[in-house]
């Protein structure tokens, strides 16, 4: 009887460990392995080499696009943290029912397909888009403004629209968890509302901020569809470079190495976030 239960338990454990191994670790392992091989006249050579990584560090195009992408994604992350924090704080101060409605409203976009949202943004910002039509109809301008779309700022704006919910939710949840009596105590001791936010809410909600930052940075950094669709001739980000190695170039080893660098950047972001979290809770 016991044997059979043990068998079940072992089977279950194998299943739980096996799935992530099969679908997460094995693929990642495969592309890490690929990144140390190389292509020679179209054929894969399975010999250990650092050539692909050297190519990344030696190539000014790879490096400058990498840094540009990091800057773009950090910028969008910071804007979303500030906006997300404001919205989350505002919502958490409303009566419960309104609070729920507010948060639901901001989460609603998550129920729509990502690609539809990008198209929607383009429909709004385009030369014949809603925004231009409105401005022309109101007589403010006579020719459509072309600067709204197909530029780095269009990518920036679209990132903010797409990923704001991922900033609001974790921050809101961490503010929610702060016991109300801390605020009451602060008020009893003569603290103003600003004091309460600065000395109680902000420090205690930092874990949520860290998670929000992480979500925003990692997701924008890997997103190569948005830049392509709204970035115009400036819509060339690091994700696109990775992608390009799997197209006609068919240089999988180099593509894999660039993907490892993308992954490493995200892991680094997670690491920094972890440290920040530990630092914020230790205080």
């Amino acid at each position: 009887m016991d044997d059979r239960r043990d068998l079940w338990r072992m089977g279950w454990a194998a299943f739980c460990l096996g799935l992530p191994f099969l679908f997460v670790l094995a693929p990642i392992g495969t592309f890490i392995l690929y990144s140390f091989w190389h292509n020679e006249s179209g054929a894969l050579v399975r010999e250990f080499t650092l050539e692909n990584y050297r190519a990344f560090f030696a190539d000014p195009v790879f490096r400058s696009i990498y840094l540009q992408t990091v800057a773009l994604c950090l910028g969008a992350t910071i804007v979303n943290l500030v906006a997300g924090y404001g919205i989350a704080l505002f919502a958490s101060r409303r009566p419960p029912r309104l609070r729920f409605a507010l948060i639901l409203m901001f989460m609603l976009p998550l129920f729509t397909s990502y690609i539809i949202k990008v198209y929607a943004v383009r429909g709004i910002l385009g030369h014949r888009g809603v925004l231009n039509e409105l401005l022309i109809a109101s007589g403010l301008i006579s020719e459509p403004i072309t600067a709204f779309i197909f530029s780095q700022s269009a990518i920036f704006l679209t990132f903010i629209v797409l990923y704001l919910p991922f900033a609001i939710l974790p921050i809101y949840l961490s503010i929610e968890r702060i016991p109300e009596n801390l605020g009451t105590a602060s008020a009893d001791l003569g603290g103003s509302q600003m004091d309460e936010i600065r000395h109680i809410i902000l420090p205690l909600s930092l874990p949520g901020v860290v998670v929000a930052a992480l979500f925003n940075f990692v997701m924008t950094f890997g997103d190569f569809v948005t830049p392509t669709m709204v970035g115009g001739t400036e819509g060339f980000t690091f994700g696109r470079i990775v992608f390009s190695q799997f197209g006609v170039a068919l240089n999988w080893p180099l593509g894999a190495a660039l993907a490892v660098i993308l992954l490493a950047t995200s892991v680094l972001a997670v690491g920094v976030a972890g440290l920040a979290m530990r630092w914020s809770t230790a205080r």
């Binding site: 195009v61 400058s64 060339f236 390009s244 006609v248 170039a249 240089n251």
Partner: peptide
């Protein structure tokens, strides 16, 4: 093709 991709990436990166 690999060379073509490299040149194209340079163009795209500005």
């Amino acid at each position: 093709l690999a060379m073509r991709q490299t040149v194209w990436n340079e163009v795209r990166s500005g």
